[in-house]
Design a protein around this nucleic acid. Structure first.
Lengths: 220, 220
DNA sequence: CGCTGTTCTGTAACTTGATCACATAACAGT
DNA sequence: ACTGTTATGTGATCAAGTTACAGAACAGCG
């Protein structure tokens, strides 16, 4: 690792600030930029922890019929607990990973990762918070899937991805279906119905004229 | 904490073996036996981590219509990551807890828990493994709920809870529905259909004569 | 420009799962 | 035996997932 890279890594992960020069010099630590659309399949083993410096990765599950559910995403400055757990628990991680944008990743070999966890309190706490955060995200996902109608879930998604100023969204029905873990046809039907009610306007690859206030009312 | 209790705790959690006498003497560490059917509601704060020495607790989510989903259970020698995360992340944990049997719990105040995590490697690794394990369990739960039919999920549940020697199970339809996060009526209907096909035999509060081999074939 | 292959959307028919509204049935305690 | 409670069965109806297409919009190219 070069001084330049180390600085860069610390900017992305303040919790790495206290790590000594010697520790950074260890073999196997590296910064790599992965190309977009690269996929890592369920069941592969990892020998390094991955800290996402910049970019987006998506964790998802695949059904045999080809349908998908997005479990969660990791953005700048995050780490992926399911991958880390693969290291700690010595088990294959049980999800697929898709690099959605070109993503700069800091790889830390399992052995070193373990040592840092013991040595550096702020690093340890950071990793813990990541785990905790994902557990909560996943339990809320289960909650949503079990108790809420897709209509409501679509509304929530639209609200999440738009603002007062920009009430339109570039997304295909297929993509939206994958996000919510349902089928494309279900999304098409529901969106169409919502369009008829004047809640949104549809065009190829885009949802525009999203009536955020009305959606907010539906969601409560 | 008395010497007796400490010994007991170490028997349940070998990873606590290296903890020093002084550390055990800290204020606030305690062993408590909680009565069965005690419930801790979503949103409450915890100031201690709970290590389950003996018994069973169930983590679950509640829908406004009264339906439930069981996220997972913690048994002897386990710790509950969602509760621990509440400590580490200083957030309310977002699930309900039900003590299913009288349960002996070792409570360790957040502050001490944090210190032990830093000091004791085997303790730290234990906690980490617990987190990793639950993440995998939850992601598999999502996978099952999204991609598998209830019939298959019922089969899997029955297989999990029975053996070659004991092919019967004491459980109500309502209970089974809660386990799988669906409605009681759905379970009743599906079980009835399975009974007609000779896969099981139903009586009040019991499923007997479970044809494990045939169920195994269905599940693959 | 028109042709062609690809991606995206719309829809009908059907199956499965969830919800609502009850009717029985089995048991527990007095 | 009577009563309240818990557990199960079932029909009707609605929401969601599946199957099976048709057609629209776009991208690239001769």
């Amino acid at each position: 690792m070069q001084t330049e890279q180390i600085k860069d890594a610390i900017t992305c992960f303040p919790c790495l600030a206290e790590i000594t020069e010697e520790d950074w010099k260890e073999n196997g630590i590296s910064v790599v930029t992965l190309p977009a659309n690269h996929i890592i399949h369920e069941g592969e083993f990892l020998e390094s922890a991955a800290l996402i410096m910049h970019g987006t990765v998506r964790m998802y599950k695949l059904g045999e019929n080809g349908r998908e559910v997005t479990l969660y995403r990791i953005h700048d400055g995050g780490c992926c607990p399911l991958m880390a757990s693969s290291i700690l628990g010595e088990t294959a991680y049980e999800a697929n990973v898709c690099i959605e944008k070109p993503t700069k990743v800091l790889f830390v070999p399992a052995r070193i990762f373990q040592r840092w966890m013991g040595t550096y309190m702020s690093f340890r706490q950071f990793i813990f918070k990541s785990f905790a955060e994902r557990l909560i995200i996943m339990s809320n996902l289960i909650d949503n899937m079990v108790f809420k109608s897709i209509r409501i879930r679509i509304c929530e998604y639209l609200l999440e991805r738009t603002t007062e100023g920009d009430n339109s969204l570039t997304i295909t029905h297929d993509h939206l279906a994958i996000e919510l873990g349902t089928a494309r046809e279900v999304i098409s039907r529901t969106l169409k119905a919502m369009e008829k009610e004047g809640l949104i306007h549809l065009s190829r690859g885009q949802i525009t004229n999203i009536q955020r206030e009305q959606l907010l009312e539906l969601v409560e």
